[in-house]
C-alpha cells in the first residue's frame, strides 16, 4: 500500500483576471500557476525554485487559502482543504503554518514579541490559561534560540534574524505538521541566512515537520530540501531528489539555473561551463505557445517545442522532467 502523502497539490491552476473600465470587463488573464502537481510526504522537505514571476508564491498562497485556486485541488491528510469550513478549517489552520519573506512586515509593529507568539494559542487553545500560554511562549522562544528578555520588546527593536525567529516561533507554537516557508531567508544578511537555515533544519527533526520551502536561491534550497521542483512561468519543468537534480539536471532551464549558482572555488568557477539563456522571462499574461521556454531554449529539440507543451514525465525513478528531448513513446 502507498503511504498517504501529507500534502498533495493536484493540477493547481490560478489565473488572475485583468479587468478594465468601470464595468470591470475581463480583458485577459495572468496565468500565474498553470497546472502544477506535487506531493509532500511526512517529514519531507520540498524546495520550490524559480525566478520571480514563476508562480512559486502563488502556489504557497493557494495552499494557505489566501487565494482561491481557479482549478485543481489541494489535499491535506486525505481531506480536500478548499471546501473546509468551521471547525475543520480551524483544524487546518493549526496544522499548516507559514513563515513569510520579510519578518518586519509579517509581524504587527504594535504588538510585543510575547503577544505575537501567544496569539495563535489564544485563538485556538481556549482551554489554556494565561500562565500556561506564556509558559509555552517562553518554551518555544528557547527552542528557536530567542533570548527571554526580548519577550517585552516590539518588532522594530529586533534584528532581522531575531524577527524571523519570532515569526518561526509563532508558526510553530501550535505544533503544525507542515510549514510553508516563502523566501524565509531572502530578506536577511548572508550570515543570518545560514543561522536561520540551520535552525529550520534542527526544528524539522525535533518537531517532525515537513516543509515547503520557496526560494529563488538554489543554494538555500539545496541545503535543506529532500526534493526540489523547478518552476518556469507557472509550470514545474523538473522535479527530482535534491542531489540527483544537482548532479544530473536534465531540463535546459534547470541546467542554466545551476550553472548560475556562485561557486566559492575560483578555478572550478572558471572551468565550469556556463549556460546562458538569452532574453527575459516572458509575461505570464501571454506565455509562449508550446514549451514555455522555447524562445530562450539552447536545445530547441524539434518542431513540437513551438506548438505542443511537453508533459511532465518520470524519466528515472523520482526524476520528472518536462522536455521533448526526454520524451519516449
Amino acid at each position: 500500500m502507498m503511504i498517504m502523502p501529507l500534502l498533495e497539490v493536484k493540477n493547481l491552476v490560478k489565473y488572475f483576471p485583468i479587468r478594465k473600465g468601470l464595468t470591470g470587463k475581463v480583458i485577459g488573464y495572468i496565468k500565474a500557476v498553470d497546472g502544477v502537481s506535487f506531493k509532500i510526504n511526512e517529514n519531507e522537505v520540498l524546495g520550490l525554485v524559480g525566478e520571480s514571476g514563476s508562480g512559486k508564491t502563488t502556489i504557497a498562497r493557494c495552499i494557505l487559502l489566501l487565494y482561491r485556486p481557479t482549478k485543481g485541488d489541494i489535499i491535506f491528510e486525505g481531506r480536500s482543504v478548499l471546501t473546509l469550513r468551521g471547525n475543520l478549517l480551524r483544524w487546518y489552520r493549526t496544522r499548516v503554518q507559514a513563515v513569510f519573506q520579510n519578518p518586519f512586515l509579517s509581524l504587527n509593529p504594535m504588538m510585543k514579541v510575547k503577544d505575537i507568539i501567544a496569539e495563535p494559542l489564544k485563538t485556538h487553545r481556549k482551554d489554556l490559561n494565561k500562565e500556561e500560554i506564556y509558559r509555552m511562549v517562553y518554551d518555544i522562544m528557547e527552542k528557536v534560540t530567542l533570548p527571554k528578555d526580548l519577550a517585552d520588546r516590539y518588532p522594530y527593536d529586533l534584528s532581522g534574524g531575531q524577527a524571523q525567529r519570532v515569526a518561526i516561533a509563532r508558526a510553530l507554537i501550535l505544533k503544525p505538521r507542515l510549514l510553508i516557508l516563502d523566501e524565509p531567508t531572502s530578506a536577511l544578511d548572508v550570515s543570518v541566512q545560514a543561522q536561520i537555515l540551520n535552525l529550520l533544519d534542527d526544528l524539522k527533526k525535533e518537531f517532525r515537520l515537513s516543509y515547503l520551502i520557496i526560494s529563488h536561491d538554489l543554494s538555500v534550497v539545496r541545503y535543506i530540501s529532500d526534493k526540489i521542483a523547478v518552476m518556469y512561468l507557472g509550470k514545474i519543468v523538473e522535479m527530482a531528489d535534491s542531489e540527483e537534480l544537482f548532479e544530473k539536471p536534465l531540463h535546459p532551464y534547470t541546467q542554466a539555473l545551476i550553472s548560475a549558482v556562485p561557486e566559492p572555488d575560483p578555478d572550478f568557477f572558471k572551468s565550469r561551463k556556463r549556460i546562458k539563456l538569452p532574453g527575459e522571462i516572458p509575461s505570464a499574461l501571454n506565455p509562449p505557445p508550446g514549451c514555455r521556454l522555447h524562445p530562450r531554449c539552447p536545445l530547441k529539440v524539434d518542431e513540437r517545442c513551438k506548438v505542443q507543451e511537453p508533459p511532465l514525465i518520470e524519466v528515472e525513478k523520482g526524476h520528472y522532467v518536462a522536455c521533448w528531448k526526454y520524451y519516449r513513446r
Binding site: L105, S106, N108, T123, A167, R170
Partner: peptide
C-alpha cells in the same frame, strides 16, 4: 501587509 496575511493564516477571526 504581510502581518495581515499571517493573521489570516493563523486562523484569527475577522473581528480580531
Amino acid at each position: 501587509m504581510p502581518y495581515i496575511d499571517a493573521a489570516k493564516v493563523l486562523g484569527l477571526r475577522t473581528p480580531t
